[in-house]
């Protein structure tokens, strides 16, 4: 079967909205309903966060959602169980995102096999460096048709961006600025020179801009400079105790897309 991420970018090149959430938060068993509601609301791609005890690239909001997800009892085994029949329910591309150690303890090969079985299309493991990936794990990903999605930042050199363009799977995750997740950015704070630099390189892979995208304004700005954007912290912040999940998800996605 063709990877759904590839299909997405073939069908749509602009204004792609990818949404991240932490599996196990706010409640342990919200995973499937968050995914189905996000698809219904119009998300083009969904990143399911695997919580980790020490999320060093994350700001306070995702630190907290990860911590609470772990307190709730989330782990990879359980997550794959929750997702067992997800392909009967949604067709949106799904990505697992998390730190390497939980995947390493689960077994990288087993992880890739499970992704394939479950209908997961890609993985973002920020602290799995390219060198380690190529030397030890690439074959497991390829055998299972799972994309390993790589990141670039404003500090990444042109030369390295070109290498990542060749080696990333599906798309390039463009970190908007030098920061951890959840820095509330204003449009004026975006590094336009970095966006221009990347756009001038003639890359062959589509790009989504993530980190600091929080509302319609920042979403539009990111979409002007790439194929779309990724929202995480702002989505997690949108969960409110007194509003049912379906309602808050629909409203959130609408507010990002339409203002």
């Amino acid at each position: 079967m063709k990877n759904r991420i590839n299909t997405l970018f073939e069908q749509k090149q602009k204004d792609i909205l990818s949404v991240y959430f932490t599996a196990g938060y706010p409640n342990l068993n919200d995973t499937v309903s968050i995914i189905t509601e996000l698809e219904k609301a119009g998300a083009d791609l969904i990143e399911i966060g695997i919580p980790f005890s020490d999320p060093t690239a994350d700001g306070p909001v995702i630190q907290q959602s990860s911590h609470l997800a772990l307190v709730n009892g989330m782990n990879l085994n359980l997550l794959f169980n929750q997702l067992k029949n997800i392909r009967d329910k949604v067709s949106v591309p799904l990505i697992l995102m998390g730190y390497f150690n939980p995947v390493y303890q689960f077994g990288v090969e087993r992880f890739c096999n499970k992704c394939n079985e479950t209908g997961i299309d890609g993985a973002i493991l920020p602290d799995l460096p390219l060198w380690e990936f190529e030397n030890n794990y690439q074959s497991f990903f390829e055998k299972n048709g799972i994309h390993n999605i790589l990141l670039i930042t404003p500090q990444t050199s042109d030369e390295r961006i070109l290498e990542i363009d060749n080696k990333t799977g599906g798309f390039i995750y463009m970190v908007s600025s030098s920061s951890t997740t959840g820095k509330n950015q204003k449009v004026e704070d975006f590094h336009q020179d970095y966006f221009n630099r990347v756009n001038s390189l003639g890359l062959k892979t589509p790009r989504l801009i993530g980190f600091g995208i929080s509302d319609n304004q920042t979403f539009n700005k990111a979409c002007e400079n790439a194929n779309g954007a990724i929202i995480g912290t702002a989505f997690i912040n949108s969960f409110k105790n007194n509003i049912p999940l379906e309602k808050s998800i629909t409203e959130f996605v609408k507010s990002v897309k339409n203002g």
Partner: peptide
């Protein structure tokens, strides 16, 4: 030269730390 002591070590850094 890869930063390993036997099977241990390496630089398991996210891209955000790569340049430094």
């Amino acid at each position: 030269e890869k930063g390993y002591y036997g099977e241990f070590g390496g630089a398991w850094i996210p891209e955000m730390m790569y340049a430094n």
